[in-house]
Structures are given as structure tokens and as C-alpha cells.
Computed example of a mutant assay.
Amino acid sequence: MTYGQPQYAPKKSKTGLWITLVLVFVLIAGGVAFTGFVTPGFFKTKADTTSRATPEQLGQSFVNGVGEGRVSQLWCPIRSKRSYTFEQMMAVSEGAQLSTPAHQRAAQEYSAAFTLGGQTVGIAMIPAEGGWCVRDAKTGGEPEPLPSLDTKPSPRPDVKTGEEAGNKFVDAINARDIPAALSVLCEKVADTTREGVQQIIHGEARYTVDNADVLTTAKQTILHLTGEVDGVRNPGRIETEDDAEGGPCVTSFSPDSD
């Protein structure tokens, strides 16, 4: 009985399998790397946009926040009115780079500057609850420091007419003297008016009184103003209560309309 030679199946090469596995691994690794560093960027070190224990930290957090649209928690509760214009510019600009680190400008005030959309933007920082906050942002340079951070009204000045009260109010605005400006406001004026006055003073506005209308029957005076903020001129308006208890006082202030 004759038996044939044993048959052996040819051994298949595993080279193709290893090449396939390597290609799959490379594709997966590349995808993870792309999504990790680009979108959503979970391998990236996220920029700090919240620290504000020191002016230096706040300055860097603000610049980082500008780049990511996250600065809302860094503003002071009352900040300059022109800072809202800055936010509009920020929304259409890309990138921000710190150009001048935080440095002291007054007893309790620091400034810093950065570039944004080819422009220089300066910020002013003051102490606040839980750290520091940004009270003003100015395009083209650093904001001028406030003479004082005191927000307690000064004693009511002795004025005889509504026109005199209005002129003292304008002088306080131009001197950027918050206590003096608040002292001329009527006791029952709305909180929004008090805050609006401080918003204007946090900037660098200047006003002149063009003329005054004394309404004897209504016991009221209306002062018509011309104001200038960052080189832009607008009309303004002050209304007073001339028979208020304690003397004439300012009941309303419209900084950019008449």
C-alpha cells in the first residue's frame, strides 16, 4: 500500500496584516492629535481668563479673555461707558497680545496695554471684591487714572439756583471727581443715574454748558451741553429740581443726547 507524501499548505504572510494595522493606528493617532490640538483642543493648555488676585494676573487674564471672548467676569460692576464701544470692536477682531505689562499709575490703580486688530488698547485696573477689576478700556492709549476711587458723595454744596447746581455738576464731571458729582444729585434720583454719572467719569469726557432754560413755573432748570468723549462731540442735557429740600439739585443727566 503506497501512501503519498504529506501535503503542506503554504504559510500565509502576515506582512499585509501588520501594514494594515499600522495604517489604522496612524489614522487614529492623527485624528486624535488633530482634535486634541485643534478642535476641540482638549490637549491644549487653556489660557487663564479668570485670575485677578493681582493686577498682573488680571492684565493677562483680560488679554487672554479678549482672544476667547471671555472678559465679562473681569469688568468692574461700574465701568466706563466707552468700554462698551471697545467690546464692539473686540467682537470683530482676532487675537490679542500683551504689549505693556501691568504697572502702577496711581495709589490704587494699575494700567496695562495690548494690541488688538492692529490697534493699541489700554486698560485701567482698580481693587475690587475678590481681587482686581477693569474699570476702563481705551483705544489708542492707556486710560488716565482717576484722582480718587472714593464713591461716597461729598456734602451737598450751598447753591442758590438750578443753573448753579448744574454748573457745579459739570465742573465735577470735568474734574473726574465722583464724590463732588454725586453730591449735587437729588437724594431720590434713580440708582441708574448715579451709576451713569460714574460711568462717564471713569472715562475722560469733558462738557461745556451752552445755555440754560430756567422754567420758573415748573421750578426746574434745563442746561444744554456739548460733550466730547474720545474726540467725538455730542449734545448733552442736565435737568434740575430748583425747590428741592436742601437746595437745588440735579435730577437727570443725559450725557450724549439733548
Rank of each mutant, 00 (worst) to 15 (best):
T2A: 15
P6M: 11
P10S: 06
P10I: 07
S13H: 01
V24K: 02
V26F: 15
A29V: 03
V32A: 09
A33W: 12
T35Y: 05
T35W: 03
V38Q: 10
G41C: 03
F42S: 01
K46H: 04
R52C: 05
E56S: 10
L58R: 02
V63W: 09
E68S: 10
Q73D: 13
Q73I: 01
P77G: 05
S83F: 12
Y84N: 03
T85P: 00
F86G: 02
E87S: 08
M90K: 00
S93E: 02
A106W: 08
Y110L: 02
A112T: 15
F114G: 00
L116I: 11
G117M: 07
G118A: 12
V121I: 13
G122S: 05
E129F: 05
G130D: 14
K138F: 13
G140C: 05
G141Y: 01
P143R: 11
P145A: 14
P147Q: 08
D150E: 14
D150K: 10
T151D: 10
R156A: 14
P157N: 03
D158A: 14
D158S: 11
A180L: 02
E187L: 12
V189I: 15
A190V: 11
A190Q: 14
T192H: 06
R194K: 15
V197C: 02
V197I: 13
Q198T: 12
I201L: 14
R206F: 15
A212V: 15
L225C: 08
V229S: 05
V232A: 06
V232L: 07
N234G: 07
G236A: 07
I238W: 06
E239R: 02
E245Y: 13
C249K: 01
F253P: 04
